[in-house]
Each structure stands twice: as C-alpha cells, then as structure tokens.
C-alpha cells in the first residue's frame, strides 16, 4: 500500500451514439491514488467532469470483482490493459506510473456494435449460447448428483473452460475479430462432461455456425488467450476444431431417416 498520488493523462474515446462520429478526448487527471482500481479512477474523472458540467464517460461495469464480465475496453492497445489474467475492474492504478499517458477505446468488432463511449452490445454472445450452449435438461427428474462419477481431471478441465466470464476481450483482442475462445470455452465446458455427450455433435455445429454469423475466423494468433481475464487456453479452440470435424463424420441419423 503506497499513498503518494499520481498524475495521469487519459485519452478516452467519446461517442454519444453509434450514428454520430466519435473522437478521442484527453483529460489531465491529477490526484490518482495507487490503491484505486482503474474504474475507480474513471469514477473520479467522471465526478470531475460532471462538476464542470460535462457528461461523464459511459462504461459498463457491475461486480467490480472480475466475475460478471461487464467491464472492459482497450487500454493502450490491450484488451483489459497491461496486466495478464485481469479484468479492467481488477486492474489497479499501482500497475501504472506517475505521468503515464493512457488511451482507452471500446471493443471494436462487427459483433459488438457500439452503444455509447466505451459501451458495446455483446448480445451476440447470448445468441451463441441460445443456439446450443446448454444441456437440454428440464427442471425436475434429474438423477442423483453422484450417479455419474466424473474424474477430477475432467471436472477440473470443464471448470477451466466454464470460468469464462463472457467479457468479449478475446474478440476485442483478436486481429480477426474472432470469437473462437469464448465459443470454444462455452462449448468444451459441456463437451468434456458426461452430461454434455448426448448433444455434443449438434451443439458443436450450431454453436460454430452461430458464432460465424457474427464474428471473424481464427488464424491462431493467440491474442485472445493473452487478453483473457480468466486465462482460458486456446487448447479449447483446438478441441472445438476437432469436434467440429468429428461432428461432420458422425452418423447421427438412424437408418431410414432421410438426409436433410
């Protein structure tokens, strides 16, 4: 805990709404405490802006614990900023130095249309889940939780994938605007578990296809992995690619049923 205060120069993308052009605005921000989180620093900037009769910077946030996936923007060209495996809300000012110049900009991708300033609409992610990112079990009638033993390594691997917070940094960081890391994480969480086997192949195909209606394609740049606040591994992308090919070969229709 250090208490000397810092002075930051902040360049922020301001855009009132998608249909008007945005531009960068620069603010001088003295009196930043190293113990502040990045968002608390923005809170302070906003308070000052409002006292000067200027509209505050709009940015998404909620839990401020790195778990809800609301927050996030580019900080000096990196999604969620310089610290690895850390969401913007968990990034603290002590990671920067007095006099630093920080430029922040919203995620940019066709799948994430801008709403205002630093806020984008990430509902395309919901469409991907909606298409098949679940196990089709209605409420009730589930067998005892201990009926299917799940080897610890498998449960752990599934958990590694399931840790995704849906922040969209992977798309933002990817030079191709691809959502492979998010989609593969959500898919492999279920594909790895016994509970997910029944729908595994259909799930794989529809999630990939839905993903591709909104996002770019992966050429294995690995930027997503580096930006991911939960360090989701690109191994899951490989597993997704494998499952996608397998899904083509699986004969899932019973004899006698006509091909599509």
């Amino acid at each position: 805990m250090s208490n000397q205060s810092m002075r930051i120069t902040l360049t922020v993308w301001r855009q009132p709404s998608p249909d008007v052009d945005g531009k960068f605005e620069t603010y001088d921000v003295p009196g930043v405490s190293p113990d502040m989180s990045f968002l608390e620093m923005l809170d302070v900037v906003n308070e000052r802006l409002m006292h000067d009769g200027k509209e505050p910077i709009a940015f998404d946030h909620d839990c401020r614990e790195g778990i809800c996936g609301s927050c996030g923007f580019m900080i000096n060209g990196r999604a969620h900023g310089p610290e690895r495996a850390t969401a913007t809300c968990q990034l603290h000012m002590r990671k920067f130095r007095d006099g630093d110049h920080l430029t922040i900009e919203p995620w940019r991708a066709a799948g994430f249309p801008l709403v205002k300033d630093l806020i984008v609409d990430r509902s395309a992610f919901d469409r991907i889940i909606e298409s098949g990112g679940y196990v089709s079990v209605g409420t009730g009638g589930a067998p005892d939780g201990n009926l299917i033993p799940i080897p610890k390594p498998v449960a752990d691997a599934a958990m590694d994938a399931a840790a995704c917070i849906g922040c969209g940094a992977c798309v933002a960081a990817c030079p191709n605007g691809a959502a492979q890391l998010f989609t593969s994480a959500k898919m492999q969480h279920l594909n790895l578990l016994p509970q997910g086997q029944a729908e595994r192949w259909d799930r794989t195909v529809v999630m990939v296809e839905t993903m591709e209606t909104y996002f770019g394609s992966c050429t294995n740049h690995r930027e997503c992995e580096a930006a991911c606040p939960k360090s989701i591994s690109i191994d899951f992308i490989a597993l997704m690619n494998k499952d996608f090919a397998k899904a083509q070969l699986k004969q899932r229709r019973l004899v006698g049923q006509s091909f599509p």
Binding site: F24, G77, E105, R108, A110, P175, G177, G216, E223, A227
Partner: peptide, 18 residues
Amino acid sequence: TNRKARPHQYQSKRDYVA
C-alpha cells in the same frame, strides 16, 4: 470474412502480446 468482422478499425495503436 475477417475484414467484415471488424468494419471499424481501432483508432489507437494496438499492442500485440502474442
């Protein structure tokens, strides 16, 4: 496809890590 996936480029300099 990838061109279409990011119609508006980043306006500030990207800092690639990987």
